[in-house]
Amino acid sequence: MRLDQRSTRGPLPPQPFFSTPQQRLALARQRYFEDGVRPSGLVSESVIQSWSRCVHGHRDPVERIAFNPVTPSRIHSALSRSQVLLQAAATDLVQLEDTLAGTACTAILTDHQGVVVHATRSAADHGEVLLPLARRVGVSLDEEHIGTGAPGVTLRTEQPCLVLGGEHFFGNLQQLHCAAAPIRDVHGRLAAVLDLTSEGRPFGFDAAAVVALYATTIENQLLRAQSSEHLVVHLQTSPALLGTPMEGLAGLDASGRIAWLNNVAARLLGVTQGEAGLHADDVFGIALNRLALLTRASDAALHRLPNGLNVWIAARMQAPDGAGPLVQLRAPARVEPARIPVAEPVAATLRDNDRHLIVQTLQACAGNVSKAARKLGVSRGLIYRHLKQAKAEPADV
């Protein structure tokens, strides 16, 4: 009789006493794989659903799973598509490796299809057998290849997941403990999965919280990296949280339409991520030209949103040539409300406001393009392109 057919039998018999996680997992596996009964309450719903998908895929828990790389062409494609992601995540992945240096954990970054594109290394050899194979670039960690595992479940559900030991579908993977979290792009689509895995020993810390923190940080970096010519708005209820993984971020296009929001910004603004047609005036209660003026300020300003929430808000313009923001932001040294600048006659679009800032800086630098570029932190080519578009020359400034 098929397992999914047997699961329709009557109520569960009384649960035997169990006092350890190992006993609980053993009972869950017995209930599901031998008795055909859904082990609700013994393991998470995401694990049960993954087990069910594996069973319906005609997989057998006694299969021995090997971590084999995908084809060379697919590896090349995965690495090529992930260049922006890897550049955005580079600093945080180094920091994460340092964070994990005293543990037996490895951090693994996969693309949106589950192919490993980066992995950290343990500081010492802890006798792992599976982990050195699993963390190789090009190995697929999706559910189809390795069954129930945190990366595969997160790829499938786009939600954080924790899979510990015996919760893995296949028996030979039950030495692994893993925690994964999703990373999304400016379109709201799954871009990558960040995973922490240890072999042979349980996590000695809250791995789910750590991986979620770093996944959020990398996601914020990716959103900014993909936001060429967007006005990026930063907001939080405390200025101390600006510039941290807990800040809200929103990208506005040249018409003032909200191109993307991170999860924190969506919650603060009371809107849904990916909701179409949102405009800065409606969501922030600030006209586009006033938001653009914030790029000239080094301090965050206190502002009341249309929903009544008081937040600290700041903004920066992303340079079109990828050189970074035109203005670096910092939280105010003193927690005192800074007024959002009163709208003065400024350009109607973000592109024009960007050009206006460059012209002002050139004036302050007596027309010296090199000096202005250094002051703004951008390339000279960017300044020349803006001036060319405005049909102006440095000498005319």
Rank of each mutant, 00 (worst) to 15 (best):
C54Q: 07
P13V: 14
A314Q: 06
R351P: 06
G127L: 03
R121K: 09
A338P: 06
D125W: 05
I358C: 02
V139G: 02
I313G: 00
T20F: 06
N307E: 04
I286A: 03
R136S: 14
R267D: 10
A209I: 08
F284D: 00
N262I: 04
L194Q: 02
Q174C: 03
E158Y: 12
V116K: 02
A119C: 12
A301D: 06
F169V: 02
A392W: 04
T295V: 09
K371T: 14
V342L: 15
L130H: 13
R136M: 15
V232L: 10
E34C: 04
T237V: 08
A107N: 00
S298K: 12
V163R: 00
E393K: 09
A225E: 04
G36Y: 07
T91K: 13
D206A: 11
L261Q: 01
G57F: 05
L27W: 07
L350Y: 01
D125Y: 03
P21D: 02
Q360N: 04
L42N: 01
P239M: 01
N307R: 03
V186C: 12
V264Y: 04
H126F: 09
A208R: 09
A101E: 13
A287I: 11
R53C: 07
W260R: 08
A315L: 06
L235I: 03
F17C: 10
R224H: 03
G152C: 01
A66H: 15
R385D: 15
E143V: 14
G138T: 11
I286P: 00
I286C: 10
V129Q: 12
H118K: 03
Q363K: 12
L288Q: 01
